[in-house]
Design a protein around this nucleic acid. Structure first.
Lengths: 204, 204
DNA sequence: CGGTGATCGTGACACCTGTCACGGGCAGGA
DNA sequence: TCCTGCCCGTGACAGGTGTCACGATCACCG
């Protein structure tokens, strides 16, 4: 075991990545051993640098931070992951924990708490934003089915039913049925509203 | 004149704010004298701390970073502003410069260049992301009219024509005409697409 | 002064959407 | 086995949407 906790940083914004590195470098017991800007480079870099904890942003090219957490869990079981994200969407928290993440921190949290969160995760504890944890329970699970999510995700870009049907290889009528169901489940009245609400809740 | 450059940080995400502070603290000639999380606190904090340069994020509660830059220009003419944002939308660059910002940096830029950008801005130079500058020229100005922007901004939330008409206090028919015009100008075929494209280009 | 363009409104038309009812197929649990 | 739930599709209907033509007012500019 090394004396310091080795940290891997994954964030697509170089400026934020560098800034977080500077922040963690202030802590004598932490050491940033790797930085990546894509989700699909996390496992490789974590292995090469023998990282103890991976700090993962969700919004990243390649694969997102949640999928990266799952990949780390499968490939490097001893490595802990801590998801750090901009959006405190309840669905994100649930999916992150299901992907094996040990912690979930929103970017609104004070800077000084980040190092402490890394230490707790490294010690085997779970770190979860308390305000989000309750919200996640209140909000409940994702009521959308697999196809509804898929159709709604494409509809988010704004095309017509025919365009969506072409992308997902379905009949236009089926697409409308899925959209109608999703509209009902989100309590909205148009697909654009439904897509927006679903995204805000982390259902996509 | 002080020996160090006094910097004000404005970003709604506390973690990013603190991280940027740590990053700039590494530079001996820079000093972070104030941190705020809202756009409408910038002028007050800049005055109180006698800041030389204001680092402004665009996405902020209260007023956004561009409006904050304009407020600083009007209230504190000697203070330079540097806009730092997540999205490299050409329209943002143009509007930021019109608001009197001395610099425009995307969060994708390497961390080490930030301090240099602050120094250049403090020296009275303009700092503009080069890749964005050319894109801004190619893209041209915002073709949308004032009312088209307003209607499109409301339509972005996804409601029906009637709902939009109620918000902007217009006739439903007029709203449809404005939307139709905006759809034509964005080269799209639905209002949702038009709103998405307009936002991506910084036209809203 | 006339011309131009943004703004606001109406009316009409073809088309798209959201909803519902109704099939059938397929997996998993009582 | 039946039942339930998800999936996929069709058809029909009312209502919303996008487009166009046509007026009208107002501000600005040559």
């Amino acid at each position: 075991m090394s004396a310091t906790i080795k940290v891997l940083l994954a964030d697509d914004q170089a400026l934020v990545r560098g800034a977080l590195a500077a922040l963690l470098a202030l802590e004598p017991d932490l050491e940033v051993v790797a930085e990546v800007g894509r989700g699909d480079e996390v496992v490789e870099a974590a292995r090469a640098s023998a990282a103890d904890v991976c700090l993962l942003d969700i919004e990243m090219p390649g694969i997102d931070g949640i999928a990266a957490a799952a990949a780390v869990r499968d490939a490097l079981p001893g490595v802990r992951t801590l998801v750090v994200t901009t959006f405190g969407r309840p669905g994100y928290l649930r999916r992150a924990l299901e992907a094996g993440a040990s912690g979930f921190v929103v970017k609104d949290t004070p800077a000084r708490q980040l190092a402490e969160a890394v230490r707790r995760v490294h010690a085997g504890l779970r770190v979860v934003d308390p305000s989000l944890a309750t919200e996640s329970l209140v909000d409940g699970a994702n009521p959308l089915t697999e196809r509804e999510r898929e159709v709604l995700a494409v509809a988010l870009r704004g095309g017509t039913v025919a365009a969506v049907a072409g992308v997902v290889h379905l009949s236009p009528g089926t697409v409308r049925n899925h959209l109608s169901s999703a509209i009902g489940k989100t309590g909205t009245s148009t697909r654009a509203e439904a897509a927006r609400v679903a995204q805000e809740r982390g259902w996509l």
